[in-house]
């Protein structure tokens, strides 16, 4: 391993090293601590200018109640789930199919198609903004969940296809030849061989997609207008305008928005890291 490992025989050095790392980490996450600390405060505490000291009273619950009862965050939160979960599922299905074909079947234009998927995935979102918005308006989908779901599915299918293609292409070729020699049709190969074997990739992909879609802000403000369909990211941005100085409530809401991706991340960390490095591309 590089860098050279501090040997087990020097426990003090190891301890000291770990301590240094944790100090760097504390600095790295200082902004997060600030938000957390503030989410614990009372409004009076904030008003009194106590930003960095210990809260005079732990008011996390009060702040969360304020978030749930006095703002629409709970609704936004549900909206986000309604948008994110089906989009993620659809992308997984579509990209497994396209990735499989791109990985296992040769046809003219395959490389061009592959390049298009990569290029589309890296494109600045603003490049699609006007036509997509126009398309959703003319389909009558503007300001509905459908608009966001369709867009996310289309856009993420590019990235997810690359991801699945690379994973499926890395499976041993002879496995597919064996299945063909036994008379399995392409559909049967997909269902009986590919899907069981790509489960780790699907796990990694699903958490990445969940995070990407959950955290989207741009399309939320381009394709929606009313509170009934707004996801949490847009809701949080609004909240900052409405609750300008109530940093304790804003902080609590910020933590609330971050919960699903952070929880997903800690539950499926291995998959998340594997996914990012496997795909090596970020949507």
């Amino acid at each position: 391993m590089y860098p050279r490992q501090i040997p087990e025989t020097r426990p003090v050095a190891r301890l000291a090293y770990a301590a240094c790392v944790w100090i760097v980490l504390a600095v790295w996450l200082l902004p997060v601590f600030a938000i957390m600390l503030t989410a614990l405060r009372t409004l009076e505490d904030v008003m009194a200018g106590n930003y960095w000291g210990w809260p005079d009273r732990i008011n996390l619950w009060g702040n969360l109640v304020a978030v749930f009862t006095q703002t629409d965050m709970l609704r936004y939160f549900l909206n986000s789930l309604i948008i994110t979960l089906p989009s993620t599922a659809l992308v997984l299905i579509l990209s497994t199919m396209t990735g499989y074909v791109l990985a296992r079947h040769r046809f003219p234009g395959a490389t061009l198609l592959f390049a298009t998927f990569i290029a589309g995935n890296f494109m600045p979102q603003q490049v699609f903004m006007i036509p997509v918005r126009d398309l959703m308006v003319s389909l009558g989908l503007y300001d509905t969940f459908g608009a966001l779901i369709i867009f996310h599915v289309a856009f993420q299918t590019g990235f997810a296809t690359l991801f699945m293609r690379n994973f499926i292409a890395a499976l041993p070729n002879e496995l597919f030849q064996a299945a063909r020699a036994e008379g399995a049709s392409p559909g049967q190969v997909l269902v009986q061989i590919v899907v069981p074997l790509v489960r780790p990739a699907l796990a990694a992909l699903s958490i990445l997609l969940f995070t990407f879609i959950w955290n989207d802000y741009f399309w939320a403000i381009v394709l929606t207008q009313t509170d009934a369909v707004k996801p949490v990211t847009a809701g949080l941005a609004n909240l900052r305008g409405e609750w300008a100085s109530s940093w304790n409530v804003i902080s609590a809401a910020t933590l609330f928005v971050a919960i699903p991706p952070v929880v997903m991340f800690f539950l499926m960390q291995r998959h998340f890291v594997a996914g990012l490095t496997m795909g090596a591309v970020k949507g």
Binding site: R14, P31, V262
Partner: peptide
Amino acid sequence: VNQKIRTMRLAKSLFFMPLVLSTVTVGVI
């Protein structure tokens, strides 16, 4: 953080954290 010391795994995860947060969250922070 690429050391095999007991707490390093957790430290790594915490270093990743900003990546999981939405940009809106990062902005607000």
